[in-house]
Computed example of a mutant assay.
Amino acid sequence: MRAVVARDGVVGVEVVDDPLPGPGQVLVEPLACGICGSDMHLVSTQAEMPDLVPPIILGHEFVGRILDNGPGGRGRFPVGSVVTSVPYLDTADGPQLIGLSPLASGGLSEQMVLQDRRLLPVPEAMIADHAALAEPLAVGAHAVAEAQMDTDDVALVIGCGPVGLAVIATLKAAGHGPVVAADFSPSRRSVAERIGADVVVDPGHHSPYRRWTELAGRELPSSPLLESDRRAHTVLFECVGLPGILAEVMNSVHAHTRIVVVGVCTEPDTVTPMIANVKELSLRFVFAYRPEEFARALDWIADGTIDVAPFITGVRTLEDAAKSFTDLRARERHCKILLKPGGEG
């Protein structure tokens, strides 16, 4: 079969062996699969350490059609069913991340193996491609759940890439508002507005913190010596994941702000803890999602609570993989590119 393989930091289409499902697994034909920031991080790491990161068939944001069951199994869903799943596959070495492990081939391929017990059915009335967005949307659902927001809280989302947009969409689906969003990219600001952000700010021209704190109300005293029975209503989601962003956020926010760090910074970074001490800031680092949050994200897409169509800025074939990775690194035009093994649709 054809598959998108990351090898020595280079992305390309190769002909590889067809995967074979084991007991409790199903063989699936991917219908669409998104390219994620994690994929790009993996390729960059592989380029830096080619001897340590083996070749990997990429793709963990997928939707597919069941082709067959593993030996001795009938499966929970009939052959031909359209399904998605959290990207984990059971192996002899334990659960492996699909598309991010050499032991679990991903959805940027003509065939893949999924765990039957983890499958979620995609409703017939739902656009199948949209189910591939359940995975990144679940990241936003988890971040918002971990923020433990009150109804009066005002959120600021820094960064409107796929993760930031997932946070915005989840905030609106959960009934939170107003939501302030900030990004340097005009195209990403436009998508943020389309999915429900109440205030969209270009940080190159205006401070995203000013309007946000105006909406949240008067700043509370930082010192606990100055008693106050009020709770700060400023909650910030950092969805960029680059060095220096967290320090800037800590310097800029009001006292008692809760900061939810969703962006994954893969490089060493520096912050000044005393700033967080004096302001009594709360930092919550989050990663991925729980299975029930993935299922909830799929339900939101299926019932129309969240329209994920604005997320998708390109639908291409597997042969366009290398160009798509290059385009996504530019950040200006694209948000989420889906690759379809069977061609565009």
Rank of each mutant, 00 (worst) to 15 (best):
D153R: 08
A134C: 08
A321E: 05
A32T: 08
R194G: 00
G345L: 05
H334Y: 15
G343I: 02
T234I: 01
P71E: 11
V179H: 02
R316D: 14
I312K: 09
A288G: 01
L42S: 01
I306F: 05
P71F: 04
F285Q: 00
P162S: 15
V199T: 09
D303L: 12
D198Q: 04
A141V: 14
S38G: 15
A216D: 07
F77T: 08
A197P: 05
L108A: 03
P50Y: 10
H130Y: 13
M49S: 12
E14N: 02
H41C: 00
V28D: 00
H334L: 01
I127T: 14
D17E: 14
I35S: 09
S282C: 11
P203T: 08
R231G: 06
D299E: 11
L31H: 02
R284M: 06
M149G: 12
E61H: 10
D90T: 08
N251I: 01
I245T: 14
G22N: 03
R210W: 15
P224A: 15
V113S: 00
V82L: 09
T317N: 06
I301W: 14
P162M: 06
E248Y: 02
R189Y: 10
P78H: 10
Q46R: 02
L114K: 01
K323D: 15
D229R: 12
